[in-house]
Design a protein around this nucleic acid. Sequence first.
DNA 1: TCGTAACCGAGACGGTACGTCCGGTCTTTAT
DNA 2: ATAAAGACCGGACGTACCGTCTCGGTTACGA
Lengths: 213, 213, 213, 213
Amino acid sequence: MQSSTPAGRAGRPRSAAADTAILAATRAALVDLGWSKLTLGDVAMRAGVAKTTLYRRWAGKNELVVDAVAELFDALRLPDRGSLAADIEGVVLQFAAILARPEAKSGLMAVVAESTRDDALRERIRTSIVDRQKRLVLEGRARAQARGELPPEAGPAEAARIADLIFDVVAGAVVHRTLVSAEPADEEWVRGFTRVLLYGLASQPAETGGEWA
Amino acid sequence: MQSSTPAGRAGRPRSAAADTAILAATRAALVDLGWSKLTLGDVAMRAGVAKTTLYRRWAGKNELVVDAVAELFDALRLPDRGSLAADIEGVVLQFAAILARPEAKSGLMAVVAESTRDDALRERIRTSIVDRQKRLVLEGRARAQARGELPPEAGPAEAARIADLIFDVVAGAVVHRTLVSAEPADEEWVRGFTRVLLYGLASQPAETGGEWA
Amino acid sequence: MQSSTPAGRAGRPRSAAADTAILAATRAALVDLGWSKLTLGDVAMRAGVAKTTLYRRWAGKNELVVDAVAELFDALRLPDRGSLAADIEGVVLQFAAILARPEAKSGLMAVVAESTRDDALRERIRTSIVDRQKRLVLEGRARAQARGELPPEAGPAEAARIADLIFDVVAGAVVHRTLVSAEPADEEWVRGFTRVLLYGLASQPAETGGEWA
Amino acid sequence: MQSSTPAGRAGRPRSAAADTAILAATRAALVDLGWSKLTLGDVAMRAGVAKTTLYRRWAGKNELVVDAVAELFDALRLPDRGSLAADIEGVVLQFAAILARPEAKSGLMAVVAESTRDDALRERIRTSIVDRQKRLVLEGRARAQARGELPPEAGPAEAARIADLIFDVVAGAVVHRTLVSAEPADEEWVRGFTRVLLYGLASQPAETGGEWA
DNA sequence: TCGTAACCGAGACGGTACGTCCGGTCTTTAT
DNA sequence: ATAAAGACCGGACGTACCGTCTCGGTTACGA
């Protein structure tokens, strides 16, 4: 968001309720219309707000959708299920559940696509969504290391590198499963995915014998 | 594509050169403008073709972009580098190189986003892009099993399930790295990713000691 | 029309039936659609003929409509009702009846409007419609002179001038009544018009007393 | 026209200058292109106005042209030349001068042609053009009756009937002379026409002897 | 009798305009 | 100063016809 009326305070103050209404209206419009058919005029109408009010607060459709979608991911929590594998499964299932919602599906990939040609937008996505959720990886990793399930890293640079890799693998796989393969990322799939993530492809048969059966 | 005039043959046949010119113009426009600013009128002009010719062959922007992007991925080849890890690294690097091209970046995620609200489009993506490249997973897996690097699956259903999982993980991770994290999927990253894919997170330190250093 | 294959005569001759079918289809389309929504593609379809066949014979919509409408006016006949006034009334009523038909209404004024910017089209209208029907004025005038109802003209130039004037007055008045005022040119109106044409406005009350009552 | 924002007064008001510019641009386009090649996009460009502004105010080409042409006829004035014949000649010459202008020629007949299939358009023509100019007939008739050149009518219904008849004859004859015969309605022709209108065909030789010579 | 030239249908082609919609901006009055 | 309302300019949309062209196929002459 970028309102907040920083210092100057003459005239009528901005309505705080408007921000909430606009973001909710944006999500509703994403559900009904999808990203490409969503129009700012329609969002303004749904929010009971004039188009000018909307433009005063957001630069355009992309920025608005990023903010509307970012709020969805703030509900993610790292559960404590007792083991690293169970923790991963828990958070991946939450992530999959959010991604299954049409407002997330429609909006997220679209703004990512737009961000390939708009550095400011990519930065906004990273700040509002990606980095904010990367905490889950860090927390999970720390907890696993405390449990002895994972070794400590060689240093902070390594820690960041591995965290990024894990985030790309986890987020990428769930997104691809959900949006491209268009299959549900359900418990069974998440179990399989977590196993590969933790133990890899090659080591599996040696450990479990009938893992894939 | 959908020309070919299957049986009935009255009237002037469709120009085969037009298809080629249109798809090339589409890719050029993706590079210059990105998906959201690409207009069919502009593509038609670039291709030296009337707008009606374009609409006669494709239903809309999404279908056109899918076909234009799909051709990019047909260049993927499974190299024989002697080991499963090296083979994976080779094909992932190719995939990353294609995804780094702006016409792929811009177009691919956008049509995936659109496909969340358009079943026909999703099916077209699957047919033209996903399933067509899934061959790489199948070939690589077969080759690795011949080499004894991977055990045979319990049955054809398992084989399909694992292939799908691998595809989701590989494609998802590379896409996320490239588009969301916006970092290059270079050799170093690919090596790290391949290691996780093959041997997992938990088993790594035990095997390599200084792998992440 | 302009077919007829004048001298060169190798190859398949043009279908005579096509001309007839096309002109009839044109009139039907005028009835259904009016001039501005009439399309040559639609006419071709109605006539069971390819668009190219139509273009091989007519230069465009205007020429086609002129020919289609011209045929309607060839049905006009000068009746012999015994007096000049009755003869005029008879032919004016016929003219009004043709003009009341929707294919004439729609087509005639449209091509006249087009002809204001197209000399060749105006010439075609004059040849195919105006001059061809001017015979009625000449015949009627000669007959009235023979009866002694009108004096002979001073010379051929005067005869032409008066004939043109009469034609403009008669045709113009009926057209204006029918198309602009959009009132029927029925027997009562024709009687009043004929009286003005023959005896004028100023002389009327003196002659008839209650003419307009 | 149809703006005026009757009572509600929220929002930006419509630009009054736009109406003027659009109608002038329409007449200019009629001169340059004629009715059938006139496009609303071109008119908007000439007027320095967006196409949407034009469509917000007029339903289509026909309505726009009617309004643009109607303004031309508001310049008509009934001169007082001392006699009925001279008054008629004066106003007919004015009418002919307007009709000789290409924007009137091109536009008027075209909208009349269109009006044969569009009752609302015909009503608009009648309101904006025909009935508005019918005042000339009524004034002229009243003046002639005051002078004793014409007898009073039997009643208001008769007066209306005769006025309509005169209007059809005068307007129709001038239009036909100008557009169909494509000859100038110059002083000589107007003199002859006025004579016929006032004194008729049959009575002329008796009065003047050499009138047509 | 047979070639061949002009015809025919079908339909794709490059264009142009349509009338609509949306993005952003600006101009009003009201709060 | 902000809000709601709505007109404004600009530009793309997808469709419809235009008039031309390229096909495969069909006559009816005349060599």
